[in-house]
Amino acid sequence: MHDNNSLIDRIYRRLSNVPMWVMWGIVVVWTIPSLSLFINSFRSRTRQRDSGFWEFVRDGDRDYRLGCPEDYNAPDLFHMIENYCVVLSNDQASGMLSSVISSLAIAVPSTIIPISIASFAAYAFAWIDFKGRKPLFIGTVALLSIPLQVALIPLLIMYSGGAHFTIPFTERTLTMVPDFALAGGPWAVVLTHTGFAMPFAIFLLHNYMSSLPGELIESARVDGADHFSTFVRLVLPLSVPAIAAFAIFQFLWTWNDYLIAVVMLNGGTPEVFPTTQRIANLAGDFGETEHLLTAGAFVQAFVPLVVFFSLQRYFVRGLLAGSVKG
């Protein structure tokens, strides 16, 4: 009798725990859209159109064979991964594969280059004693919250025609940056990302590097190591956690970016469009390709999700260390 009573008690307490209900309510609302996308990406065009994703339990007549179908127009026969077959094919209209490669061509160098450059600068700010170090560092960090719109127009002009400086009070212009015709290709996007990543990367890596024990670095210097070898042999290996944190952050950021890509690649061929731009364009044409949007959006989100779940701890650390970038 006593046991029974406590069971009812427990159930009552569980049910009347309103805060938990609220929390799980948030979790469900937060999960449903992604779950819906994932499930719908395996459903045929008509099913996506005619019923909600929760009806997938009734989609019993599906063909479960692996691989892509040979005839996409065969009626009543739908392969589970058919949408992915179309999306990952070489089809110009809806093929995402070339844009996956384009996204990699943007995200990988946009991650590696800022990391290297910023780690040099972070070391200099942390451990090399030079005049004007403090104001320069504060100035760099002040650039953290500059909205990127402010720089986009001149950057596009520079990448499509070089940068020229008119010497004041004269008619003379001096070419500072020659026209490399970068606009319309991935390097314009990479260079833009590199510039915008710089303040955050320097800020994050500097915070980490300056927290390394000073005696360690001093003793290396006393042993005759110059700044270069101290940096390469000592500080860089010790900073791997911070570098990993920034790398993941930057990779997600650049993979998911849309604005810079759409500005810099406007005149380019569709082949160079990254996944975000391709998906945005797909979402633009209503009707015909809407059933592919689910698989396409999932392909777009798949890489960041894998990176995110496998390296979540570093990502969180990056967020915590520099919660100013957005």
Binding site: I117, A121, F130, I146, M158, A163, L191, F228
Partner: peptide, 21 residues
């Protein structure tokens, strides 16, 4: 060393951020 370590970052900052702004 300070110049060498800082030059790439400051170049990018100025060319891609400060000057365009």
């Amino acid at each position: 060393r300070a110049v060498i370590f800082l030059a790439p970052a400051l170049t990018f900052l100025s060319i891609n951020l400060v000057v365009p702004a």
